[in-house]
Simulated scan of single mutants.
Amino acid sequence: MRTTDFDYFLPEECIAQRPAKPRDSSRLLVFNRDDDHVEHRIFHQLPDYLNANDVLVLNETRVIPARLKAQKIPGGGRAEVLLLHRLGDMTWEVMVGGGGLKPGKKLQIINGPQAQIREDLGGPRRVIVFSEAITPMLDRLGEMPLPPYIHTPLEENSEYQTTFARHPGSAAAPTAGLHFTPNTIAAIEDKGVRIAKITLHVGLDTFVPVREDDPNKHPIHSEWCHVPLDVVQAIKTAKEAGGKVVAAGTTTVRALETAAHTSSHQNIPEFEGPTSLYILPGFDFRVVDAMLTNFHLPRSTLLMMVSAFASKEQILQLYKMATIEGYRFYSFGDAMLIL
């Protein structure tokens, strides 16, 4: 297995710059792994593929407006801080933009507190200490950290937030969840499908392509997640009734399979903590029966995960088909349901 096995050509015009309006008017490519059958639908038709004994699992993380503009002290040169992980009330792991940002350097956050760089973690990553807690100020000071391939500004921050987002902590949206509207969720519940919710805080490493020739040598990133007891019970009930566990997004897949692989028992346990689970072709899926996901970047760990759930050959063929059919790719793009 080589990283180049997960490469594909995508015309730039296929990269969605704006979300669909309404959210559930995005397209939905439905693929059945058993017979290779493909259907082209609209996202609001998702309930057609769910049954009363199924459980749909969503990630209710909330994206924080983590991009902060700053000035260097002294001198006033421009800098940028992108919050990644909160290490304490005033201490964060961040990515910085600007020259000369070494340990000891001070920054003035525009219209906010001062900060000092404590540690160089390599590359653009730093540990930074603010003069006061920054979290309560983020809605006023911060901007949403859009992926680098989206060049069109948001009309409002809620566009890059799921309608069910609750727990702040992500540097990127769980994009499969962006398609859901309250009406879609209500239609799913009307069919007797149980809605369950986990939390996984998405890091920016999710966008980093695999640069090693051998994907197994890629240093996989860690993300914090929580699979609560009520989700565990909902999954157990669905499995016992012959229903399927439908994971909305690769983040949900990662959280559920992390919990399952911490135990040797058949039942999934409750889990809370960091996960470094790396899902490549050949992975043993213990929980997830169906996956709802967007179309992912070439050579990305997310594309590799999807290629583990179906096959690499099937996924790349579907991506080629989606390109020809005019599907929109990446964070604001269309969705795929893999059964």
Results as ranks from 00 to 15, higher is better:
R166E: 15
R166W: 14
G169I: 07
G169S: 09
G169Q: 06
A172M: 04
P174D: 03
A176N: 04
G177F: 03
G177P: 01
H179K: 11
F180H: 05
F180E: 02
N183T: 14
T184W: 03
I185C: 04
A187F: 05
G192F: 09
V193P: 04
I195V: 14
H201V: 06
V202M: 08
D205F: 06
V210I: 15
E212D: 13
N216I: 06
K217E: 06
K217G: 01
H218V: 00
P219Y: 09
I220N: 04
E223P: 05
H226G: 05
H226N: 14
V227Y: 07
V227I: 11
V231A: 12
I235W: 13
V246R: 00
A247E: 02
G249F: 02
T252A: 12
V253W: 01
R254E: 05
A255M: 13
L256E: 03
E257K: 05
E257Q: 08
T258A: 00
H261Y: 05
H261C: 05
S264M: 13
Q266D: 15
N267H: 11
N267K: 10
I268L: 15
F271G: 01
F271D: 03
F271Y: 15
G273Q: 09
P274S: 13
T275N: 09
I279Y: 04
L280D: 00
G282M: 08
G282P: 02
D284F: 03
F285I: 04
V288W: 03
D289A: 01
M291Q: 06
